Simulated scan of single mutants.
Amino acid sequence: MTVVELRPGPGDRDVVASASRTIKAEAAALDALEKALEGPLGRNVARAVERMAACEGRVIVTGMGKSGHISAKISATLASTGTPAQFVHPAEASHGDLGMITAKDVVLALSWSGESKELASILAYAKRFGVTVIAITSRAKSALAKAADIPLVLPASREACPLGLAPTSSSTQQLVMGDALAVALLEKRGFTSDDFHVFHPGGRLGARLQFVRDLMHQGDEIPLVAHGTLMSDAILAMTNKGFGILGVIDEAGALCGVITDGDLRRHLHDGLLAHKVESVMSDAPKTIEPGVVASAALDVMNGAKISALFVVDRNRPVGILHMHDLLRAGVV
């Protein structure tokens, strides 16, 4: 089989240069956005987060066109990080979807120009029923900014599109501002990995957010022997459990050491069977607690180059977790 090396041609270089210009333009827009937080935008972001955190209903996110696509993503991010949210299409609002908005909600409306006529029915409805409106726009004197209780005015930026027409840098700014609001709310609420798992039970992310207690082996499956046990008996117990590791517990039931296949090999020529477990075991075993997420257990195993962990509660072994358990669960 002949291997053909593909080398970039002149056309490829043009494409790469174009991609680089786009990335630089959008990065510059984000730099401008970060700097703008030092002024009135930052103060209004703080107000917006306070208002959304105090909301007793949902954050209704809305926008038209590209701003609508960004709005839908922001709504999904808010919902998955602990802030109840829903996207309402502004064109559908005047055809019955206004009923999705209640007086306890907060409206987050996006329009780069601030002049999207489709938002009019939502803005009028919000004013009529006293619903707080937070606006993300680029024009402080726009209809949207004037109608908003809290306007988040983003800095003007050059679109990456060479025609200056297709929303690129502007939509990136909107998206990042939405992410910034969601993360600030997440931190303000004290949202934890436990909470995150509730909203992300599926896929690999859900697998990594499972807890050690959900995957560990318990009860009679745990390979344990008492301090003072002869190695002849310990090896039988270790072999019967099939984890390649054995835990040693003291009189109080606490884990005081472990014996691995490696320990057995190191003592193979020392009259191993006549020894007691304490002369063979490693007395500083790696352990993990049952309430830790599975991905953290994987990190411990990879870092220590081991394939099994004893699960302890107040240093008492309550389970054992093997790398194969993480593989079966889809964590790896």
Score class of each variant (00 low, 15 high):
H89K: 05
Y125H: 14
A140E: 15
S111P: 13
R158Q: 15
P162M: 08
F87Q: 11
P84D: 02
L175W: 02
S170I: 02
T102K: 15
L98I: 07
D105P: 13
S111F: 03
T172I: 11
E118A: 00
F87V: 04
G82A: 07
L123E: 08
G82T: 05
S80E: 09
T81L: 13
K117M: 05
T137K: 06
V131P: 14
I136M: 15
D97P: 13
A85E: 09
A148L: 10
G164T: 09
S142L: 11
I134F: 03
T168A: 12
A120L: 14
R158E: 15
A156R: 15
V153P: 06
D97E: 15
A148T: 07
E92I: 06
Q174H: 14
L108G: 03
A145E: 08
S138C: 15
T77K: 12
A140S: 15
V106A: 01
K127N: 05
A91F: 00
G164S: 13
S142K: 13
G164I: 05
K146E: 13
T132R: 11
S116K: 03
A124F: 01
Q86P: 00
A156C: 07
V107E: 02
S111G: 07
S94D: 08
V176S: 04
M100V: 03
S138G: 15
Q173L: 10
A143F: 03
K141P: 04
G130A: 09
H89Y: 00
E92T: 07
A126H: 07
V131S: 09
E118V: 00
I101M: 15
A166I: 06
V107R: 09
L108S: 04
G99I: 06
S138Y: 11
A91W: 02
G164W: 12
E159F: 04
Y125P: 05
L144N: 11
L78Y: 07
A145R: 12
R158W: 01
P167D: 03
G164A: 02
V106T: 11
L108H: 05
A145M: 04
K141Y: 06
L123N: 06
A93P: 14
D105Y: 01
G96C: 06
C161F: 08
W112V: 00
D105G: 03
F129N: 13
S121K: 06
T81Q: 12
R158S: 13
A145I: 03
E159H: 04
G130E: 10
V106C: 10
M100L: 15
A156I: 14
V176R: 12
G96D: 04
R158V: 12
P151C: 04
L123F: 03
I134Q: 06
V133A: 06
A148G: 12
S121G: 00
V88T: 05
A124M: 08
S94G: 02
K127H: 10
D149W: 01
A93H: 06
